[in-house]
Computed example of a mutant assay.
Amino acid sequence: MTTLPCDPRTFKTGDYPGRLISIDVTGFNPLKLRARMRLTNSTDEISFEGMAFAGNSAVLPVAAVTTVCRSLGCSEYAANALVHWTQYDDCLFTCPDGKSAKRTCQFMLGSFTCKTDAMNLAECQMGSFWAMSNQNPLSYAGAQVVCADCGEN
């Protein structure tokens, strides 16, 4: 398989089809996630960060937020609220060759539905926007998550 030249400052996730390996939490206010994907027919990986979109909803579903907390080793969550963010926030993008760069964050996940016993976000069903776009650039509504038994976050 021929790999495209990769620039971490400009690549799009759709340029690199693959299988989701993990989704990790990198921030809580707003909820910022890092996805890792293994490229199709390869051992190479890409990773990228982005924000979870809260949309018009005031909060994320309880099972999804509980899964966010469980993925960090916490057993429960205490709060989840709508929070606005600015596009000045930086997100990290990493190419298959390991080159990384920070660039302006965008939404990476429009929704996710988790079973009540899910332990990490990779077990959840992902919704729209996987391609890193902002639906409404005037409204950057994300979700804030506070996990009850994990100390500060």
Rank of each mutant, 00 (worst) to 15 (best):
K102F: 12
R19V: 15
S22P: 07
Q87F: 13
S47C: 07
R38I: 12
T43L: 11
L121N: 03
Q144I: 03
F48N: 04
S133I: 13
T2K: 11
A143E: 03
V68N: 01
D24S: 14
G151M: 05
L92C: 01
T13L: 05
G73A: 05
S139T: 09
R9N: 14
K99M: 10
Q87R: 12
P5M: 03
D7F: 08
P137W: 10
F107Y: 12
M126K: 08
D90Q: 15
A118Y: 01
G55F: 01
G73N: 09
C150Y: 05
N29C: 04
E49Q: 15
F48V: 01
K102T: 13
S111H: 14
L20T: 09
L92E: 05
L20Y: 03
R70E: 01
F11D: 02
F53R: 09
G110D: 05
Y77Q: 00
S75P: 10
Y16A: 12
C124E: 04
P30C: 03
F11Y: 07
Q87E: 08
N80S: 06
S22H: 06
C105P: 05
S42K: 07
T94M: 01
C150K: 07
F28V: 03
D24R: 13
Y88I: 10
S133A: 13
P61Q: 03
C69E: 03
P17T: 07
L60W: 05
A81D: 12
L138H: 10
A81I: 06
D24L: 11
I21P: 09
F112P: 02
R34H: 13
L4T: 07
I21N: 14
V146D: 06
A52S: 08
R9V: 13
L60G: 02
Q135A: 09
P5A: 11
L31M: 05
E123N: 03
I21A: 15
K115I: 12
T40N: 14
L92P: 01
T10V: 08
A122V: 06
A52R: 02
Q135R: 10
W85P: 02
G98K: 03
C147V: 00
G98D: 01
C150Q: 09
K32N: 11
L4K: 15
I23L: 05
S100I: 02
I23C: 03
Q144C: 06
P17H: 07
F53Y: 13
F48G: 00
R38V: 13
C147G: 04
A54L: 08
V25T: 06
A143P: 01
Q87I: 13
C124A: 11
S71H: 08
